[in-house]
């Protein structure tokens, strides 16, 4: 198993279009917010705001890292490399959580997603092994790519024109101690206690479903 030793050439032409589309899809909301600043109300608000907002800049930096990591994840052709970039993305998301004062969520994000879930990911990638890659040409599925690009452009244009007309409102304010273990626990076991219990049904379904699907493959082997 020499998955890690496979060199992926830097100049990949084939995933070019899909990465371009993904870039546009991810940049549209970002562009849209920057356009929103250009409205008179937003400009007035920006004048009264402090010149340097550390929390905001932390958010932008981690947000940019997340987007970059996500792009690298979906454009890598080696599954192990892609998975490692996904770890990077999940860490960057934890940073976004931190900048939003959700400290407990950030810790859980690192522990559960970047830790446990990613181990599972790698495990599955190793187990499935180096599957044959399907070669895609640029021309392949060109029609659907054009349609998808058109749809993204249309939606992006709609979004931008919407935001030009009206800048987004301030998000709802959070209470003191938001995001701490204490407040998370309070919300989870009081307000959201019933959904918390209902999740167990969802987990049961996932377990039974996984058993149903995976048992089939062992039975096939027995029959063969």
């Amino acid at each position: 198993m020499d998955l890690l030793s496979q060199k992926t050439p830097l100049s990949q032409r084939r995933p070019f279009i899909s990465s371009l589309m993904a870039t546009i899809a991810l940049l549209v909301p970002w562009l849209a917010t920057s356009v929103a600043w250009a409205t008179p109300q937003a400009a007035a608000a920006a004048k009264t705001a402090p010149a340097f907002n550390g929390a905001l800049w932390t958010f932008y930096i981690f947000g940019a890292l997340t987007i970059a990591g996500a792009l690298l994840t979906i454009t890598r052709r080696n599954p192990v490399t892609a998975a490692l970039w996904l770890v990077f993305t999940l860490f960057a998301t934890a940073g976004v959580y931190l900048s939003l004062h959700a400290t407990f969520m950030a810790a859980i994000q690192v522990l559960v997603y970047a830790g446990a879930i990613m181990v599972l990911f790698m495990f599955v990638v190793m187990m499935v092994g180096n599957t044959e890659r399907q070669e895609f040409g640029i021309m392949r599925g060109l029609f659907s790519k054009v349609v998808a690009l058109g749809a993204i452009a249309l939606l992006g244009w709609r979004l931008i024109s919407l935001l030009m007309r009206q800048a987004p409102a301030k998000a709802a304010m959070v209470s003191d101690g938001y995001g701490s273990v204490h407040s998370m626990g309070g919300v989870l076991f009081r307000e959201y206690l019933f959904p918390f219990e209902a999740i167990s049904v969802l987990l049961l379904v996932a377990i039974v479903g996984a058993v149903v699907i995976s048992r089939r493959s062992t039975e096939e082997k027995e029959e063969v």
Binding site: V205, I213, R216
Partner: peptide
């Protein structure tokens, strides 16, 4: 809950 159960049911046909 509904969707996960249905995904598994769709894929449940042996062989």
């Amino acid at each position: 809950t509904m969707s996960l159960a249905i995904y598994a049911l769709v894929a449940s046909w042996p062989g």
